[in-house]
Design a binder for these strands. Structure first.
Lengths: 137, 137
DNA sequence: CTGCAATTGATAATCATTGTCGATAAGACG
DNA sequence: CGTCTTATCGACAATGATTATCAATTGCAG
């Protein structure tokens, strides 16, 4: 109805952000910003927030809300549309997992209660082998 | 190991909060505070936050982080220890659901990747029948 | 009943995120 | 290629949720 999505301009900042995102880790907007800065970029914090948000909306990046309330972003493979992660609570490293049939299962549960337009979030966190060995847990 | 949990004092404020919590809805700390105030309580906002936090730690209330980043609290049945909800994105009403074997499943996925101390969050949201009918979606 | 530490409440402080606004530059057009 | 329109930028103020501070209270052990 109100569409006509105006694709974003490819600015230097946007390119830098997309580029940094290549290392597929979960980081907060602020953390990505710091990383850019530490590499010489002059991109502003607000810009990083704006870019990550718009990327999250179009599904180009994953966004998860951590327990602390901050939002973590991570690049997401091109084709994939919905998947889940097992993230280390200590170092942040994440591996993609796949939860077979959960989509269908969730929809079924929803129907059962009369709820529609079901959306789901599955967040698995643990302590990765390295961190467990380091005893940081 | 560092236990010796000093049980909290039963103050008027704490009692009021526990009491308000009886209507088993998900609300933010601020929302619970408003409700208390609207019923004549003089309990302060900080106190509500403190009480809800400590209750969440002991597992007496459920705490979920909404997409907006705010934390929502809800009373949790005495004996139950871990369960999930299907919450309406429009009116907030939630029903408890049960996801059979997910605990074990999660632990297995963790083991498979070498991750330990697995913790999981499943958040299902949808639009309840009433809200769907009202067309607020 | 007494006394002290846990708890409270008003308020300031923090933190992540969003809004503001003049300056800048992407990209359409000629 | 030069211009013009306007999306985007960046520095900073503003917001909103949550946490810390600290003097005043008040459970509750003795």
């Amino acid at each position: 109805m109100t569409s006509a999505a105006p694709r974003p301009r490819m600015t230097r900042q946007r390119r830098e952000i997309l580029d940094a995102l290549d290392l597929g880790e979960f980081r907060s907007a602020q953390a990505w910003h710091e990383r850019l800065r530490s590499e010489g970029s002059t991109t502003g914090l607000a810009t990083v927030y704006r870019a990550l948000q718009s990327l999250a909306e179009t599904g180009e990046v994953d966004a998860v809300v951590a327990e602390s309330g901050e939002t973590l972003y991570r690049r997401c493979e091109a084709g994939e549309e919905h998947h889940h992660h097992l993230r280390c609570r200590v170092c942040g490293k994440a591996v993609e997992i796949d939860v077979p049939d959960f989509e269908a299962y969730a929809a079924a549960i929803g129907r059962e209660h009369g709820y529609g337009d079901i959306r789901h979030t599955i967040e698995l966190t643990g302590v990765c082998p390295e961190c467990a060995a380091a005893g940081d847990a």
